[in-house]
Amino acid sequence: MSEHSLVIEHLNRTFASPAGPVHALSNIQLKVKQGEFVTLIGPSGCGKSTLLKIVGGLDTGYEGKAELNGRPITGPGIEKGVIFQEPRLFPWLTVEKNIAANLSLKNPAVRRRVDELIELVRLKGFEKAYPRELSGGMAQRVAIARALLRSPDVLLLDEPFGALDAFTRAHMQEVLLDIWQNNKTTMLFVTHDLDEAVFLGEKVVIMNPRPGHIREILPIDLPFPRSRTGASFQELRRLVLQAFEKGEEPALDLGAGI
């Protein structure tokens, strides 16, 4: 197996619209190593969610090369776990059944793994709770456990903590880093939050819109656990911001990409 788990080359995506074709992604080049944590950041409309959908196999209308472990991406599958901004749990299933989903809890191997994951995402005591009884952060942790149960090669996260308050968000980021360090799952994390991108990523991919393209790929050479207040963190944060200001679309805070 090659060193790179995800390889994207000369990727283009165009949508048909009544006003003519819309160029959503233009000549994307991205290589992600096995076990790497990559964050994608950019203003709304820069195509970061579209890129994630393509990698997740939910959008197959692309041109160019998109390969996971040497195989072209042609559709969704359990090797590509996806976490959305909303938890997307089945409201009629309890927490543990949501995690198991189409796998049976009667299978002792599944049962054991689900119990481990509940422990990992710190939801012990809520196994039998229904989604309506959970807070936003708890529900999102169930969604993460559900994706992890399938031991995906890559975990794709589309602004997963965007709807959470600042405290829960910081807590969830730490939970995610814990999981990443334990499982060494490759992570592709879309966000529009500068701090989040620098705090989590080993590599920050900066994207700009019209048409959506990669402006710069910035390595973040800070050891984990990182401190948000340290001088080097602030310096890197400034660097990312600068990369945007060079771009024609500096308004980062215009809103979340949907």
Binding site: G56, L58, P76, V82, R88, W92, A101, N102
Partner: peptide, 27 residues
């Protein structure tokens, strides 16, 4: 449709989509 996407990602068979997504939703 958001939940339908989830079943595609989790690799539900057609039969599982019917019994574990469509029927409970329509119940």
């Amino acid at each position: 449709t958001k939940l339908y996407d989830v079943t595609r990602i989790l690799g539900y068979s057609r039969w599982q989509q019917l019994t574990k997504l469509i029927l409970p939703s329509a119940l």
